[in-house]
Amino acid sequence: MDRHDGFREFVLARQQALMRTAYLLTGDAHLAEDLLQSVLAKVVRQWAKLSRDGNPEAYIRKALVNQYTSWRRRPRPELPSAEVPQHGASYDDATLDRMVLRQALARLAPKQRAVIVLRFWEDLTEAQAAEVLGCSIGNVKSQTHRALTRLRTIAPELAHLLSDPEIEEVAP
């Protein structure tokens, strides 16, 4: 019996879900893997306490977001640009939406990107997102509003994605 067996079991079960969060935050497979692995490496040493007292997954998600925003305060690595193709026969609308959204997310400030992921993908409430980000609810509201406004500005072709009532309530 290895003392890390409990950690291994947890990671095996949850790593793909956590990886999806990391990937949405970073937009890059290598960076996402690096982000998640560096957080997990820190979790290893606290595993006994976390597994006994807390909610490891919530802790890891919070650490992912905080480490990501900390990374992104530093000079950003550039990613190869990929021209967004024009609407055409070879791409369906959903594929095109993903490509445009991916590029638009890359142009958001770190916290804005994080708040989009937390509020509209993780479906966290404003209070929950504030807890994860370590800021006030008011700050989450303003960051969300700014992020959506910026998405609308830099990618007007995404307007249909951002016009659902739930989103309009946040940033009309």
Binding site: H4, W121, D123, H160, L161
Partner: peptide, 20 residues
């Protein structure tokens, strides 16, 4: 929401990993 669907699509492109 349609935004959630698009984010889901991006998240689904995350590579498979084995990080433990």
């Amino acid at each position: 929401t349609r935004l959630r669907q698009a984010l889901d699509g991006i998240a689904a492109e995350a590579p498979l990993v084995n990080l433990a």
